Amino acid sequence: MDKRYGESLDDWAKQTPKSPKKDLNQTSVADVMYTEASRLNSEKRYKEALTLINVAIEHNETDFEYYTKKGTVLENLNRFSESYECYMKALELEENDNTKEQLARMLYKWANSLNDKAKALELIEEAILILPESCRDTYHERFWYLKGSILDCLSRPIDSRRSYLIAEGMTDEIKELDRQVEFLKTSKDTLINITGTRFYFGLEPFKRGMVVNLIRETDNEHDPDAIRVEFEGETVGYVANNDYTLIENVKSASEIRKMENDKAEVVLVYLDEYVIAKLI
């Protein structure tokens, strides 16, 4: 055991210089405990550090730095909910950017550790909100990428895509995404999604305004409602017809199979994945 760490807490007080006018007071004992807790924390001796920072707080319950340090120690012990309480107590005592930064960092770490993605989303959103402007450049990209990843897991592709674009600072692409979302919500056209493109030529052939042929495959043994999509005599995909390939505001192959339309015009490639076309 480190010689500086005695058998009892009294050993710590004995090391503290006496004031020439008065004995060691509670505030100076607290300062000693805080200093040594910081040292132990930096040495990854987190349980010992927690013991000392608790004593520091017992001697002085009004110093926000003590609670911030306790929050950091608990974070290092992966005791995130307790760490959160300490950071919030520190901010209650004195609002400051240093504690906010450490709280935001802890929330990121906590969110990244969870299998409960709904809870993780709450945490990373709080981290983004509380992060001080002065350190946004340090954490901005990392936080928004994590949010995007969590939204992916929650099957929220639009919000996920927007988060990734925010992480990369791609403002023009964010505006285009918003335009596409609004178009899908408000379009009066009958829209379809062309899927399975990766099995043919990928997204490369699809350009806005190109017209494709819709070929109904009534003898398709896997799906009698299947509609093949052709361009210049080549199969380029199929009209989406299941929950895995459909998105909101588009019609499935089953829904349009009895319609007379045998052509569609490509209007956009959505989220770099979905080819959206309107029946013509």
Rank of each mutant, 00 (worst) to 15 (best):
N25R: 07
N25K: 11
Q26H: 13
Q26F: 10
T27K: 14
T27C: 10
T27M: 10
S28R: 07
V29S: 13
V29Y: 11
V29M: 12
A30C: 09
D31F: 11
V32Y: 11
V32T: 13
M33S: 05
M33Y: 10
E36I: 03
E36Q: 14
A37Y: 00
S38L: 10
L40V: 02
L40F: 01
N41H: 13
S42V: 11
S42M: 06
K44Q: 10
K47Q: 12
A49E: 01
A49T: 00
L50P: 03
T51A: 08
L52R: 02
I53T: 02
I53W: 06
V55H: 08
V55W: 06
A56H: 01
A56L: 00
I57R: 01
E58L: 06
E58F: 02
E58P: 02
E58V: 04
E58T: 11
H59I: 06
H59E: 08
N60T: 08
E61M: 08
T62L: 11
D63A: 13
D63C: 08
E65T: 09
E65F: 14
Y66I: 03
Y66E: 06
Y67S: 03
Y67H: 04
Y67C: 00
Y67I: 01
Y67W: 09
Y67A: 04
T68Q: 15
T68C: 14
K69W: 11
K69H: 10
K69G: 02
G71A: 03
T72H: 09
V73T: 06
V73A: 05
V73I: 14
V73F: 02
L74N: 03
L74T: 07
E75P: 01
E75N: 15
N76R: 12
N78H: 13
R79T: 09
R79M: 11
R79L: 08
E82Q: 05
S83L: 03
S83P: 09
S83Y: 03
E85K: 10
E85L: 11
C86R: 00
Y87M: 09
M88D: 14
K89A: 02
A90V: 05
A90Q: 04
L91Q: 07
L91Y: 05
L91H: 11
L93T: 02
L93M: 06
E94R: 15
E94H: 15
E94Y: 09
E95M: 13
E95C: 09
E95W: 14
E95D: 13
N96F: 15
D97T: 12
D97R: 12
N98K: 15
N98G: 14
N98S: 15
K100R: 14
K100D: 09
K100M: 15
E101V: 14
E101W: 10
E101T: 15
A104E: 07
R105K: 15
R105Q: 12
R105H: 13
R105A: 11
R105M: 12
M106D: 01
M106A: 11
M106E: 03
M106C: 12
L107F: 05
Y108K: 05
Y108T: 02
K109N: 06
A111P: 01
A111M: 00
S113E: 04
S113Y: 02
L114G: 01
D116G: 02
D116N: 09
D116K: 02
D116L: 05
A118K: 13
K119Y: 05
K119F: 07
A120L: 00
A120M: 00
L121D: 04
L123E: 01
L123T: 00
I124L: 00
I124G: 07
E125K: 09
E126F: 04
E126S: 08
A127L: 08
A127S: 12
A127E: 04
I128H: 00
